[in-house]
Simulated assay, not measured.
Amino acid sequence: MTALELWPIVTVLVGILGLLVGSFLNVVVYRVPNGMSVVAPPSACPGCGSEIKPYDNVPVLSWLALRGKCRSCKEPISARYPLVEAGVGVFFAVVAVWWWLVSSASATSTSAVVANVLVLVAFLWLAGVSVALALIDLDTHKLPNAIVLPSYLVGGILLAAAGILNSDIDALIRAGIGMAAMWLAYFLMAMLYPGGMGFGDVKLAGVLGLYLGFVGWGALLVGAFAAFFFGGLYATGLLLARKAGRKSGIPFGPWMLIGAWTGIFFGTALWNSYLSLLGVA
């Protein structure tokens, strides 16, 4: 089977993995902010306390089969659960397509193949973390260290190993610079404007800079700018709708994450187009 024939199969499998990860992320989003273990006790209905059986825990399908209600007490189950599961499934599939387009998909050497797989795993980790952090920040205005800090280790190890296997030292240098630059920029903003930027944002900025820098300079610059662009649009919308005042705080983590993924997916093309307009590329 050729690499081109394998691509759709990998995308479908990654999408299915995303459905399963999405189911787990629903647990993470609820339990981590409350200081609870994500592995024990087993998931249960918040209404009657009945443990959720494996056949009632199939992503999306179980919610549809149960018509959005607990099997035991008929307590409504929020539509957010299947939406998160389906959304993560689609997100993972999109990441797989992006990875295929930007990686050396035709590589045949063992080291290149392993490197490509490591890059895919690294960005799937970021995708899962992005969904969890965005939802938690929207719910609680917090970005838990339990999720953010391990991402430095996971992302750093996977991307460093991929860069070494591909002999792409430039990518590792960019990743290091991106991590340090975005962390420092957000740290300075947090110090100068404590009410507008939290240290959770600072720590997340370093993780996003690591990934953006690994992709390229264009991705780093576009991803860093896009966070403020999207966040500004959202804040302006709230002001116009009179749902927030000039001093109202908004969770910035989701916009950092949306900006980062804009940079990852489109940053290189957008930056090259901008340079072309300037006549320097």
Rank of each mutant, 00 (worst) to 15 (best):
K243D: 07
C70T: 10
G267I: 11
G267N: 12
Y55A: 02
V38D: 06
V84T: 15
L19I: 07
A65H: 05
L257K: 07
Y30G: 11
A175D: 04
I264D: 03
A65N: 07
L188W: 03
M182F: 14
F252L: 14
L120F: 08
F187S: 11
G237K: 04
C45K: 07
D170E: 14
L6R: 12
S23A: 03
V27P: 10
L188T: 02
L204C: 12
L135S: 03
V88A: 08
H141L: 13
V154K: 11
V39R: 04
L240M: 15
M189S: 14
T140P: 04
K142Y: 03
F230Y: 15
L17K: 03
P144H: 02
E85P: 00
D168M: 01
A134N: 08
A79P: 13
T236E: 04
A3K: 04
K53F: 06
L192W: 03
A244Y: 13
G68T: 02
V90S: 01
A115S: 15
V90T: 12
D168L: 00
G231A: 11
W63Q: 01
W261L: 06
G259Q: 13
V207G: 00
K247A: 09
I173G: 06
L158Q: 02
L6P: 08
G216H: 13
F214A: 00
E85H: 01
A105Y: 15
A227R: 05
V58A: 10
V95M: 14
L83E: 02
L238S: 05
F252V: 06
Y234Q: 14
P42T: 11
I173T: 12
L270A: 15
G263Y: 05
M197Q: 00
L120K: 07
I77C: 06
V58K: 10
I16N: 00
M189Y: 11
F91Q: 11
G87I: 08
A162I: 02
S248Q: 08
G22T: 07
L20K: 00
G263P: 01
I169Q: 12
I177R: 03
V119C: 00
Y186N: 00
A190M: 09
F252Y: 15
P8R: 02
G253R: 04
I16H: 00
C48P: 02
L208P: 12
D139R: 11
S130G: 13
